[in-house]
């Protein structure tokens, strides 16, 4: 194992850096910009059982140190992902991929997870119970520990690959949702999804996003994410994928010190398509600066 490598739910990653779902498409288009085999893995665009157009325009707003999005899970549906997107990705990415799944009912989560679990390319299922931009599903499963546990049990019953539950920060107590997922059999947790937020247009005096609210991401939410990863690490023993505003090699290490085994990079990919490659390239020198020999030794290092 190299000095950057980590093991996530039994699968080794050459480094802990993972483009976050919704900021990297199905990955292959980024291969036009750089060799994406340098990534630990990638979490592909949130996939649902049926094709979704997503929300009407406007879907994007800027804010200080971040952005809001209300894309609304636009995706071609799981069957097209399997028949078209994954074969394209296989040509340019030669590692296990993290399959991000969303749904609006238990049955839908089960159906989509079962299909993706059967794909040899898929290394992990990342089950999103935290999308703030859709109605009647998504986040409503992630705000209630019992509902979250029901998704875990249903998905675990039909899958063999590690199941990582992606949690929302839009709760009073993320630790109780994390514990419920662990108790129900989840293999890992990823946190945090975006923070529900709003901008208002001074000209129209109406919410800027057509959906009204959107999800805040970018450096603005990094300390919030670090705090939640730290709290969840204290409460569970399954691995955590930390995300939320990670923009640099230093941020990756800080997230790992809080308790993350691997780290996803989201909004930074949208500002700079080369962000993940540059973060990975910067890690060895930043590790040297802080006297770190093996990156995996940092996991949970901030806890006494």
């Amino acid at each position: 194992m190299g000095r950057l490598s980590v093991t996530l739910c039994g699968v080794e990653l050459s480094n802990p850096v993972i483009p976050a779902s919704g900021t990297f498409g199905y990955g292959y288009e980024f291969a036009d910009y750089y060799d994406i085999d340098c990534l630990g893995t990638l979490s592909f665009k949130g996939t649902t059982s049926q094709p979704r157009f997503g929300n009407p325009q406007i879907r994007i707003a800027e804010t200080h140190a971040g952005m809001l999005n209300a894309v609304g899970l636009q995706n071609p549906g799981v069957d097209a992902v399997i028949s078209q997107e994954l074969p394209r990705l296989a040509k340019v990415f030669h590692k296990p991929v993290m399959a991000n799944v969303s749904g609006f009912s238990l049955e839908e989560y089960v159906c989509t997870c079962q299909k993706l679990d059967a794909q040899p390319q898929v290394g992990w299922l990342e089950v999103n119970i935290s999308c703030p931009n859709v109605h009647g599903g998504g986040m409503s499963f992630g705000t209630d520990p019992a509902a979250a546990a029901s998704v875990v049990r249903a998905v675990k019953a039909v899958t063999k690959k590690p199941v990582i539950m992606k949690l929302t920060p839009n709760v009073t107590d993320i630790v109780s949702v994390a514990r419920a997922c662990e108790d129900a059999g989840a293999d890992g947790l990823s946190l945090i999804n975006t923070v529900q937020a709003m901008r208002i247009d001074l000209y129209t005096r109406r919410p800027l996003l057509a959906n009204g609210t959107g999800g805040l991401s970018g450096p603005a939410i990094f300390p919030l994410a670090v705090r939640m990863v730290y709290q969840v690490y204290e409460a569970v023993s399954i691995p955590i994928v930390g995300l939320g505003g990670v923009s640099s090699a230093e941020d990756v290490i800080e997230m790992m010190l809080a308790g993350a085994t691997a780290v996803e990079v989201g909004a930074a990919n949208l500002v700079d398509p080369y962000a993940c490659r540059e973060i990975i390239a910067a890690l060895p020198a930043v590790m040297d600066k802080y006297g770190i020999k093996e990156l995996r030794d940092m996991i949970g290092g901030a806890h006494g």
Partner: peptide, 27 residues
């Protein structure tokens, strides 16, 4: 014109519906 997140096809922020299905204005 469109409000864009990334400008290179990653975020699906600027999608509009076309005869051929959803298309990203930026890409």
């Amino acid at each position: 014109e469109a409000r864009m997140g990334c400008g290179f096809g990653a975020c699906m922020g600027c999608t509009r519906m076309t005869v051929n299905g959803p298309r990203r204005v930026c890409k």
